[in-house]
């Protein structure tokens, strides 16, 4: 087998397998909450407040975006608003509290902090705009 293809296969398999335990845990957790709690209570019907909660959760949680899609998709099925879930998905990948120390070291403290704060704010804006546009389509 071509060495480059072998390396690409190994890297992809490693990336997938690294995300599997978290994904399995999330799927099991979703199954449990779905059975125990029929509807999620912790979101309001206020778009701005929902998106702030969603962004807050997305900022502190970290991992493969794949996990956030599964979690977000199941939350929507449970009746959580699309604005909240969108801000959650966007913050999950654009705000990196876990990676912040590394970003500070490599790219500078002011830049890293400002980038994360602005990404948090933008995740709310992105969610509201996206859901607004979808409403027009």
């Amino acid at each position: 087998m071509d060495a480059r293809l072998k390396s690409a296969l190994t890297k992809s398999a490693r990336a997938m397998s690294n995300s599997l335990p978290v994904l399995a845990g999330v799927v099991l957790l979703v199954g449990l909450t779905h059975t125990l709690i029929p509807k999620f209570f912790y979101f309001s019907k206020n778009a701005v407040l929902d998106s702030i909660i969603g962004s807050g959760l997305g900022s502190v949680l970290a991992g493969n975006p794949l996990t956030s899609y599964v979690l977000g998709g199941e939350l929507v099925k449970q009746g959580v608003s699309l604005v909240a879930v969108t801000s959650f998905l966007v913050a999950w990948v654009t705000v990196g509290l876990v990676q912040l120390p590394a970003e500070v070291i490599m790219l500078g403290r002011r830049f890293a902090i400002l980038r994360n704060i602005s990404s948090f704010a933008f995740s709310i804006i992105v969610a509201i705009i996206t859901v607004f546009i979808l409403g027009l389509l």
């Binding site: 799927v27 099991l28 979703v30 199954g31 449990l32 779905h34 059975t35 599964v70 199941e74």
Partner: peptide, 14 residues
């Protein structure tokens, strides 16, 4: 009684 339905729901997602 909640364990089996929870596992079934998780399996559906998988």
């Amino acid at each position: 009684e909640v364990i089996l339905p929870a596992l079934k729901f998780s399996l559906k997602i998988v």
